[in-house]
Write a protein that binds this DNA or RNA. Structure first.
Lengths: 138, 138
DNA sequence: GTTCACTCCTTTCATCATTCAAGTAAATCG
DNA sequence: CGATTTACTTGAATGATGAAAGGAGTGAAC
């Protein structure tokens, strides 16, 4: 991991579909040398994969919820199974120290579906709901 | 947005560097027809960009913090300016309803840097810190 | 029923990127 | 000093892309 690798990662974060030749021009290497470095970053597990940024509002998922989960029981499996069954809504489930046991990030198409999800959720855990009003990603 | 577009989006979420020809085989179209559809999804703003999934632990950012921000003042600009000055740590700054005004997601290399960040932060807002212990992304 | 316009797709071909093998140069190590 | 490793370049073959031309299906107007 040198300065060139860091520039490669930065460039791929901006646009992961750029050709190895273009990327090579940015870091002053040939396309082949660049491809070898990228392959190494993949093998080291630094680059975990290639994906797209999606506008979830535009595909009908306008509701963005952050749910702090409080479990009274020490047995979390029913909650985790519930998440698996509703994985279509779940973006992240962070196990956290501090306030609550988990911080659950979800997306919903409607308030009705959010409501139904929360009804199901309340069978397993207590929760506190926050709705995202505006998103400022770096 | 039909079923084919949804399959294209799913496939690109898994691997955004796949060729249009490969993607076309998945959705039973030629590479050219697939490329046209992808271009349309970009123009509609549904696909916002192409990026990489990074293992931040492996690039020296093991500390993952979720910070709930409480502002007493109605004037948020000093806080937002502080974030801009420390944007290297900031991943997301969600404006939320519910508990707090913002939910701030950050990454730090060391507890020392987290501590310095929190010292700076406390000049502008009150906060509650949660540290991510484990991450379960869908 | 016919025509026109439109959308969505395929085929073909020229251009460009990628990949493999071979070779060079510098650094490391016994 | 010679052998090995690492990181890179070059050149040729393969494969992907993008532009142009054309075909098939749909719906509207007459």
């Amino acid at each position: 991991m040198d300065a060139t690798d860091r520039r490669i990662i930065e460039a791929l974060q901006q646009n992961s579909r750029m050709t190895m030749k273009e990327l090579g021009e940015l870091v002053h290497l040939t396309g082949q040398a660049t491809a070898t470095r990228v392959k190494k970053l993949e093998d080291l597990g630094i680059i975990e994969g290639y994906t797209i940024r999606i506008n979830e509002e535009r595909i009908g998922l306008p509701i963005h919820a952050m749910i702090t989960i409080y479990t009274t029981s020490t047995f979390h499996d029913p909650y985790l199974l519930f998440l698996k069954e509703h994985r279509q809504y779940v973006r992240h489930n962070y196990k956290v120290s501090g306030d609550g046991c988990y911080l659950l990030e979800c997306r919903f198409p409607t308030n009705q579906e959010l409501n139904a999800f929360l009804d199901g959720l309340s069978k397993y855990v207590n929760y506190k709901l926050s709705l995202v009003i505006d998103q400022n990603t770096q």
